[in-house]
Amino acid sequence: MNIPNQITISRILLIPFFILLLTIPFDWGNISIGERILPVSHLVAALLFIIASTTDWVDGYYARKYNLVTNLGKFLDPLADKLLVSAALVMLVELALAPAWIVIVIISREFAVTGLRLVAAGEGTVLAAGQMGKLKTWIQIVAISALLLHNFPFSFIGFPFATIALYAALIITVVSGVDYFVKNWHVMRDSK
């Protein structure tokens, strides 16, 4: 297994640690942010999430630079993104930091696209993520990070950046999902 794929797998392996930080009641104290309280465990989880998310750029850059793009990488990379983002979104609902309906829409899109990729794989075709899908992932990462940080530093000025970012992520997620299905409809049409 090449280095980019190992980096991708490391992203998947960080997910349980991220979840543990948000589920186990570590008493590391709190940070006051305006009128809100940010538990230190949420800050640490946000940093771990950001580090894990950054590996998405690292593995892609390394794979392209050294011509190490593989079908396994084309499959694992978007899967790792979906697992990380889905875990984070579910945890945000658990922590009452994101509405469940938005998370359901986003995760449903991810399952639908993964299903399309599986149909394509059954036909011997690998569907890589497009540019709009990559933009969608980065907007989701920004929104999740802002929510995990309880809208820091924007809470000091009363600007709801985290909420705006979450709605932007919802919109781009739906639009990119429709775009992905339109561009790859031939896979469904031609499947046996």
Rank of each mutant, 00 (worst) to 15 (best):
I3A: 10
T8H: 13
I9T: 04
L13T: 03
F17G: 15
F18N: 00
I19E: 01
F26Q: 04
W28V: 08
G29V: 15
G29Y: 13
N30H: 07
N30A: 13
S32H: 11
L38P: 02
P39V: 06
P39M: 09
S41F: 01
S41G: 00
L48Y: 07
A52Y: 04
T54I: 10
T54H: 11
T54G: 15
T55L: 14
V58T: 10
G73V: 03
K74T: 06
P78G: 06
L84Y: 05
A87F: 04
V90I: 14
V93I: 09
L97V: 01
A98Y: 02
A98H: 01
A100H: 08
A100Q: 11
V103T: 07
I104D: 07
V105L: 07
I107R: 02
I107D: 03
R109M: 09
E110A: 12
T114C: 03
T114I: 09
A121Q: 12
E123F: 08
T125E: 15
L127N: 07
Q131G: 13
M132S: 13
G133K: 06
L135E: 03
A146M: 14
H150C: 12
F154Y: 12
S155C: 13
F159P: 00
F161K: 03
I171F: 14
T173F: 05
V174I: 15
V174M: 12
D179H: 14
V182T: 06
V182F: 11
N184T: 14
W185V: 10
M188T: 15
S191R: 14
K192L: 11
